[in-house]
Each structure stands twice: as structure tokens, then as C-alpha cells.
């Protein structure tokens, strides 16, 4: 099957021809399968933001190609807007882009730009609001009366309302409290399950990524450092640390336990797995400190 997104030898150079010339991504290649929940992780300046702005055609590659469903997104530059409707991008701190008088109209901005009929727009707005965890009575309020967390949900709903095939979220939980973080991620997981869309979650929190995604793409200095399932990636903890990234806290505990002589898989990354592993050890009768 054709992957939904295929990136081939993508390079983007800022300020070419000036002394400030710098490649934000260099010769990047990877694929995203349809329906996949992919985590993209990397240190500040690793090229995450530049990469995702290429995937929906906001930036044009200096060289290389991006294929959406097998077609090069820059094959018809005039129709790049169609690509942006299919690859929805939620920026960091998206609440700063709200502008309409009511929440409803702000969410409707995307679908209206797509040229849908008023009935279709209405359905899209209500569905997106529900997915983003916004109650019906909020729709008539001004977005500026809402709390920070609610504003962020409105902004996310504004992108979901376009019903994109691929949804990219850049640090969707930045600046939220732990509870708000967890609730928002639960909404995103529910949306993924209900729709079966492809989701790219960009984050620098390993814990957040570990608990949600099917596969992880690790970026370092404009290159792909590694990609694989969370288990595969966290098994290479030393390389991650050299990239300035942490493994999830649970993995760190497991590794510390193994270093003290416990027969435990050092790549576990959820609390449940670790608990199960520890219980199994206890049952097995081996020495537990």
C-alpha cells in the first residue's frame, strides 16, 4: 500500500547566499503509513518545525520531494491550498490565531475556505467541537472570554473541522497543567480511534510521546537519528541521551533497576508494563530489593 506521506531527500536552507546560510533539515527521508499515530521528537533546533511546515506546503523545499497519497504536493503550485486542507497543521500556541466573534465562526473558518455548503460547514463545526471536547453552549461565546485551555481546544477544532487526512499537532500540550495535558491527549486519542486518520504528534516530552504513538521519528541536527516503535527507540537510550533527549521516566527506573542486577527489560516505557514486570519478578521468587 502507498504510504499517505512520503518524504524524499528533503532539504531546506534558510538565507541561502548570505553569511547566515543554515540548513534546518538536510536530506530527510521517511514515510508515514495511513492511519498511523507517529510521534516526532527532537531537541530545539533539530528541524521539527521546519519539517512540519513542509508537509502541508507552507514552506517549499530547497530540494527533495513530498508525496501525499503518491502525488508530489508541489506538482501544481497553484493548488497548494488543496494540500493544506488535507494535511491539517496545528501550530504551537494556536490560541493566538483566533480572531472571530464567536467560537462557532472561528471553527468554521477552515471549512468555509474549503467552499463547503452551510449545512456541511455546520456539521463539520459541531463534529470538530465534540472531538476537541468543547460543549455546545461554548460555540456562541467569544473565543476571547474562554480560558487558555479552552482557547487551545477551539484552535485545534478549527483544524479538525477541515477533516484532514493527516493531522499534525506541534506541541499541543505546551503550557497546559498536567491534568489539562492528559485530557487533551485523551481527546486526540479518541479522535484518532474514531476517524482512523493519520496523526503526527510533535513534542519534546518523551513521556507524552511514549504513551500515545505507534512509531517515533527522532530528529537530531537536521537529520533523522532513528525511527521505530517506542520499544525499539527506547532500547537505544544512550543514543537518545547523546541527542540531548531523555527516555521516559519509567524507562529510566527500569534501566536503573537492571543496572542493580534485576532481570528486567530496560525498554519498558509505561507504568503498567513496569508494574507487570516487577510483579512477574516477585512471583518468580528472585530477590527483590
Amino acid at each position: 500500500m502507498e504510504p499517505i506521506l512520503r518524504v524524499e531527500h528533503l532539504t531546506h536552507t534558510y538565507g541561502s547566499g548570505t553569511p547566515f546560510e543554515r540548513s534546518a533539515v538536510q536530506d530527510l527521508s521517511f514515510q508515514v503509513e495511513a492511519g498511523e499515530f507517529l510521534g516526532v521528537i527532537g531537541h530545539t533546533g533539530s528541524g521539527k518545525s521546519t519539517l512540519i511546515q513542509h508537509l502541508n506546503g507552507l514552506l517549499r523545499p530547497t530540494s527533495g520531494h513530498i508525496y501525499l497519497d503518491g502525488t508530489d504536493i508541489w506538482a501544481k503550485p497553484k493548488e497548494i491550498r488543496q494540500v493544506r486542507f488535507q494535511v491539517g497543521l496545528v501550530f504551537q500556541y494556536p490560541e493566538y490565531q483566533l480572531f472571530e466573534e464567536t467560537v462557532y465562526r472561528d471553527i468554521a473558518f477552515g471549512p468555509t475556505n474549503m467552499g463547503l455548503t452551510p449545512e456541511q460547514v455546520d456539521r463539520a463545526v459541531r463534529e470538530a467541537a465534540a472531538f476537541a471536547g468543547l460543549s455546545e453552549e461554548l460555540l456562541d461565546k467569544s473565543p476571547f472570554e474562554l480560558s487558555g485551555g479552552q482557547k487551545r481546544r477551539v484552535a485545534i477544532a478549527g483544524v479538525i473541522a477541515m477533516d484532514p487526512k493527516v493531522l499534525i499537532l506541534d506541541e499541543p500540550t505546551a503550557g497546559l497543567d498536567p491534568e489539562g495535558r492528559e485530557r487533551l491527549l485523551a481527546n486526540i486519542r479518541a479522535y484518532h480511534q474514531a476517524k482512523g486518520n493519520t496523526i503526527l504528534l510533535v513534542s519534546h516530552s518523551m513521556d507524552e510521546i511514549a504513551r500515545n504513538v505507534d512509531r517515533i521519528l527522532v530528529l537530531k541536527d537536521a537529520h533523522v537519528l532513528m525511527s521505530g516503535t517506542p520499544r525499539e527507540v527506547f532500547a537505544r537510550a544512550e543514543e537518545l541521551e547523546s541527542a540531548g533527549l531523555d527516555v521516559p521516566q519509567v524507562t529510566r527506573i527500569a534501566r536503573a533497576l537492571r543496572d542493580r542486577g534485576l532481570a528486567i527489560d530496560p525498554a519498558v516505557y509505561t507504568t503498567e508494563e513496569l508494574t507487570a514486570a516487577l510483579l512477574a519478578l516477585k512471583k518468580g521468587g528472585s530477590a527483590v530489593c
Partner: peptide
């Protein structure tokens, strides 16, 4: 620049 990109991502022209 940032807001422009965000609105373009929602199909603003």
C-alpha cells in the same frame, strides 16, 4: 509571519 502561516494552514488566501 507566524499568524499568517497559521491562517494559511486553515486555507486563508
Amino acid at each position: 509571519d507566524k499568524i499568517m502561516s497559521a491562517q494559511k494552514a486553515r486555507g486563508a488566501d
